[in-house]
């Protein structure tokens, strides 16, 4: 488990991350979302111990990154946005080096490298120099290097950026496979990708954590209800607007005469279904449909990051 506790990072006078509290439970696939400059890469770099926080702390499985860096780093594999590769080395040679770096015993290294190559689909290019590989394969080598030493947590910074559509699908499939056995944290701009792969989402904006939770938690706290009732809109709409807890009533097209369809925007945590039922009974307007309208991740993201974009 990784925890950022009041983690703040300043680059000179610029504050890239402000007092972020984030707890990443074991076994989850967490998507870190944010516009450019939101602090995603800074947060990932703090988690991996690439640099320390200006204030606050980073803990990995209860250990402090500052006081026990080696033990913490053993538990984390990292793929930065630009994979850190030595172009002159062969794929197998590079993975052997990273395995040594990550304290895999010499006698176990050949088998370990072979397993990782198999998992990441690198068997065919194992003998080729890294510098001669396509971008997709380089990304795979980057992910493979993050797997060396078998760390329980993988941190991937925009792993699909700059890849062609086929490579994107392949890398996503690989992340999905890895997510079954590892805790995975990855940053992305692509909301559908996060929706496809993640069990939890954290949204950063201007260096602050503005929302964190499972996709259901993020979408489930919906404040909108879709209502269809039998009755004339002229009669029902004014009554609905006067209902306590309702902020806005947005009429919707139905195409049927004598049916009123609306989207009700309610106050946070307002429980209006009982009052709504009683009101519509009083108006003799039977309910045909009453369902919560879930926000898409895109809508949630846009709402939470609506402020001025970070420079």
């Amino acid at each position: 488990m990784i925890e950022l506790c009041q983690a703040t990072k300043r680059y000179g006078p610029k504050e890239a991350l402000h007092a972020v509290d984030l707890r990443i439970p074991e076994g989850c696939v967490l998507g870190l979302l944010g516009v450019n400059g939101a602090g995603k890469t800074t947060a990932l770099n703090l988690m991996t111990g690439y640099f320390p926080p200006t204030s606050g702390s980073v803990r990995v499985d209860g250990m402090d990154m500052l006081t026990q860096p080696r033990a913490c780093k053993r538990r984390i594999g990292y793929l930065p946005e630009q994979p850190p590769l030595y172009d002159e080395m062969s794929v197998a040679g590079f993975l052997t080096f990273v395995s040594r770096l990550r304290e895999v015993k010499d006698r176990d290294i050949p088998g370990h490298v072979k397993d990782i190559c198999g998992l990441c689909g690198l068997e065919e290019v194992a003998g080729r120099p890294v510098g001669k590989l396509s971008k997709g394969y380089r990304q795979r080598v980057g992910i493979a290097s993050a797997l060396c030493g078998d760390p329980p947590t993988l941190i991937l910074d925009e792993p699909t950026v700059g890849l062609d559509p086929r490579q994107v699908v392949e890398i996503r499939s690989l992340i999905r496979t890895l997510g079954e056995t590892h805790t995975v944290v990855f940053s992305s701009h692509l909301l559908p990708e996060v929706q496809q792969l993640c069990t939890r989402v954290a949204i950063l904006h201007q260096g602050r954590l503005v929302r964190e939770g499972s996709l259901e938690e993020l979408q489930g706290g919906s404040r909108r209800l879709r209502l269809e009732a039998l009755g004339a809109p002229e009669k029902l709409l004014p009554a609905l607007r006067g209902l306590p807890g309702v902020q806005r009533v947005l009429p919707q097209e139905t195409g049927e005469a004598g049916v009123t369809a609306v989207l009700l925007e309610c106050e946070e945590k307002a429980e209006i279904s009982e009052a709504l039922f009683r009101l519509l009974c009083a108006l003799d307007a039977p309910i045909r449909l009453l369902a919560p309208e879930r926000d898409s991740l895109e809508e949630i993201f846009l709402r939470l990051t609506a402020g001025k974009e970070a420079p």
Binding site: T48, G49, Y50, P80, P84, Y86, V98, L101, R102
Partner: peptide
């Protein structure tokens, strides 16, 4: 320059 220091500094090596 090549940012391979990210690999080295995030590995369990002092």
């Amino acid at each position: 320059q090549k940012r391979t220091d990210q690999l080295l500094l995030t590995s369990p090596v002092s």
